[in-house]
Computed example of a mutant assay.
Amino acid sequence: MRSLESSVPHRLGRRTNFIPALEGKPAKWADVIESVSDAQKRASLAKSVVSTTLVRDPDGRPIVTTADVDVMAQLTPDQLFAVRRPASHKGMRNYISRVTVPSQAHDSRAVWCESFNELSHLRDLLITMQPTQVSTQPLRLEWVFASGVRSHVPDFLLRVDGGKTMLVDVTTRSKLDDPRLRSILQLTRATAETIGWEYEVRTELPPQRVRNLNFVHAGRRDVRQDRSSAARLLRQARRPIDVERASQLLGGGSLGYLRLWDLIAHGLAHIPLDEPIDIDSRVSSDRPAGGGSWLVNL
């Protein structure tokens, strides 16, 4: 890992960047697409990748560093600051936001989302994957081609159960029609696999799921309950149980519902997220199986 001069934040259109600009001329897209389509060349590019990161030094201050594959394999989301931040601007169409996320190194942490699509997916991951660490815009991946360089900033880096690390990109179905983006995402997947990370490309969530995620996420509040004991109570209840029955087990009335939404929002209880929520919705202690129409296999 090589330390660089700490970058002065600079505004470039819709984003504020905290790392130096990429050096070198951009690689020709024809070269990128051809190289990535060849499995051997793609693997070679993945092994030779370099990233620019903004990491926390021993005093807690951000420093700009570069890292190869071996060093990246040791990085954790809690070590990383965002390498860029969305900025509001006149005529903007994106919905930018900050989200409180889990952390093992800090009492609390908030990260930026660059769009409503990203926000919805982060909420989905917080509920369904229960990550212990989260960083957004965590690093800039840089690859050298014969005709120049290309880079990519993934959207999320998460540490999940079992110590696994997951890199995530969020986009839209229509953008995947662009062979340039598909090539970059395919190369990002190969790079993540070389590092030892899992990788997901996510597109738009179904509208009903987004509505449910927004509703459930609003239930992340301190309702003065022992979440572990409450989750255990639901697990021990006679099956099956629905929303109404679960709320009664948790104290009944409005407080029982608040406690239930709090458990669901923290991933300690689960309900179907792809259909309307009502008092008859089934409550489960089992994490939902992976997969969904929004996951793309490139």
Rank of each mutant, 00 (worst) to 15 (best):
R2W: 06
S3M: 04
L4V: 04
L4A: 11
G13Y: 10
G13R: 13
R14D: 12
R15Y: 15
A21Q: 10
A30F: 05
A30T: 09
D31Q: 10
E34T: 02
S37I: 05
Q40A: 08
A43G: 11
L45N: 02
V49G: 09
T53C: 10
R56I: 00
I63P: 00
I63R: 05
T66A: 02
V69S: 08
D70I: 00
D70W: 00
V71P: 02
T76P: 06
D78M: 05
V83W: 03
R85E: 14
R85L: 13
P86M: 02
P86C: 10
H89T: 04
H89S: 05
K90F: 14
M92P: 01
R98G: 01
R109W: 13
E118N: 13
S120V: 00
L125K: 06
M129G: 08
Q130W: 09
V134F: 08
V134S: 00
L141C: 06
F145N: 03
A146K: 13
S151D: 07
S151V: 02
V160L: 00
G162P: 05
M166C: 03
T172M: 07
L176R: 01
R180E: 11
L185V: 02
T188N: 04
A192V: 06
I195C: 10
G196V: 10
E198W: 11
E198Y: 03
Y199T: 02
E200H: 03
V201W: 09
T203H: 03
P207L: 12
P207R: 13
R209C: 04
N212G: 07
N212H: 12
R220H: 03
R224K: 15
D226W: 10
R227T: 14
S229A: 14
A231E: 11
Q236K: 15
A237E: 07
R238V: 15
R238L: 15
R239M: 15
D242C: 10
A246W: 15
A246Y: 14
A246C: 12
L249Q: 15
G251P: 15
G251S: 09
L255P: 15
G256M: 14
L258Q: 08
L258G: 01
L260H: 13
W261H: 07
A265I: 14
L268C: 04
L268D: 11
D274P: 12
E275H: 06
I277P: 06
S281L: 09
R287G: 06
A289C: 07
A289I: 09
G291M: 14
G292N: 14
L295S: 07
